[in-house]
Simulated scan of single mutants.
Amino acid sequence: MSAADEILDVVDENDHVVGRARRGDVYARGLRHRCVFVLARDPEGRAFVHRRTATKLVFPGLYDMFVGGVVGTGESYDDAALREAEEELGVSGLPRPEYLFKFLYDDGGGRTWWSAVYEVEWAGAVAPQVEEVAWHGFLGEEELAGRVRGGEWEFVPDGLAAYARLRARRGFSGPAPMR
């Protein structure tokens, strides 16, 4: 089954399930669904940052400071966060990511999803999926903030929205470090 054929829950503005649809149809019709964002850090506090492959259905070729993806039909946010983080990092035995908050992402142009944000620390090696990740590295907070602020890398807009909310929750304004 291709990613476009995966069945997703369609949700309303209150995150209640109102139907189901194929992922490709969800994207094409701008149906609201559920996603998870996991900020993966190494023991030094550096964030895993990656560039999405050119074949991704949403935001191909852009950079992201979160791993994650869609929540499958009937799947919990917590289970999706662990599954997606392990898949994208290419690891097994990851500790369960810590839930931080949830928000409704809406770009005003037909892309809208409930977004649960998590954080996890991983001390081992990573082996990201080549189908999902074209480049990866661990960046310190200053470097990540500089990349976001400098505009030399184009980041996924939903990741930037999650990153801004995370920084605000931690008491930072502007592109200062999170820790």
Results as ranks from 00 to 15, higher is better:
1 M>K: 02
1 M>W: 04
1 M>D: 14
2 S>T: 14
3 A>K: 03
3 A>W: 04
3 A>Q: 12
6 E>I: 06
7 I>A: 09
11 V>E: 08
11 V>N: 09
12 D>M: 01
13 E>R: 13
13 E>T: 14
14 N>C: 10
15 D>C: 13
15 D>S: 03
17 V>I: 15
17 V>W: 01
17 V>N: 02
17 V>D: 01
18 V>W: 00
19 G>L: 06
20 R>W: 00
21 A>E: 12
22 R>T: 05
24 G>W: 03
25 D>H: 00
26 V>Y: 00
28 A>N: 01
30 G>S: 04
30 G>A: 03
31 L>V: 09
32 R>W: 06
36 V>H: 09
36 V>I: 00
38 V>E: 01
39 L>K: 09
44 E>M: 08
45 G>A: 08
45 G>Y: 06
45 G>L: 09
48 F>V: 03
48 F>K: 06
49 V>I: 10
50 H>D: 11
51 R>A: 01
52 R>Q: 12
55 T>G: 11
55 T>F: 11
55 T>N: 11
58 V>E: 13
60 P>R: 03
61 G>C: 02
62 L>D: 05
63 Y>P: 06
64 D>I: 03
64 D>Q: 15
65 M>P: 00
65 M>F: 03
68 G>R: 09
71 V>W: 04
72 G>V: 04
72 G>F: 10
74 G>S: 05
76 S>E: 00
77 Y>Q: 04
78 D>A: 15
78 D>K: 07
81 A>L: 05
82 L>N: 04
83 R>W: 03
85 A>D: 13
88 E>W: 00
89 L>C: 09
90 G>N: 12
92 S>V: 13
92 S>G: 13
97 P>E: 02
99 Y>Q: 07
99 Y>V: 01
100 L>H: 01
100 L>P: 02
101 F>N: 11
103 F>C: 11
104 L>V: 13
107 D>G: 00
108 G>I: 13
109 G>C: 00
109 G>P: 07
110 G>K: 07
112 T>E: 14
114 W>S: 11
115 S>C: 13
116 A>L: 10
117 V>E: 06
118 Y>D: 11
118 Y>N: 01
118 Y>K: 00
118 Y>R: 07
120 V>H: 07
123 A>E: 15
123 A>G: 15
123 A>W: 05
125 A>V: 03
125 A>I: 06
126 V>D: 05
127 A>F: 08
129 Q>A: 15
129 Q>C: 12
130 V>G: 13
131 E>D: 15
134 A>V: 07
134 A>D: 13
136 H>G: 01
138 F>N: 03
138 F>P: 09
141 E>K: 06
142 E>F: 10
143 E>N: 03
145 A>V: 08
145 A>D: 14
145 A>T: 02
146 G>A: 15
146 G>L: 12
148 V>H: 11
148 V>R: 03
150 G>N: 12
151 G>M: 08
151 G>E: 01
153 W>M: 07
153 W>T: 08
154 E>L: 14
155 F>W: 05
161 A>V: 00
162 A>Y: 08
166 L>F: 13
168 A>K: 11
168 A>Q: 14
168 A>L: 15
168 A>F: 02
170 R>P: 00
170 R>C: 12
171 G>E: 11
174 G>M: 10
176 A>F: 13
178 M>G: 08
179 R>K: 12
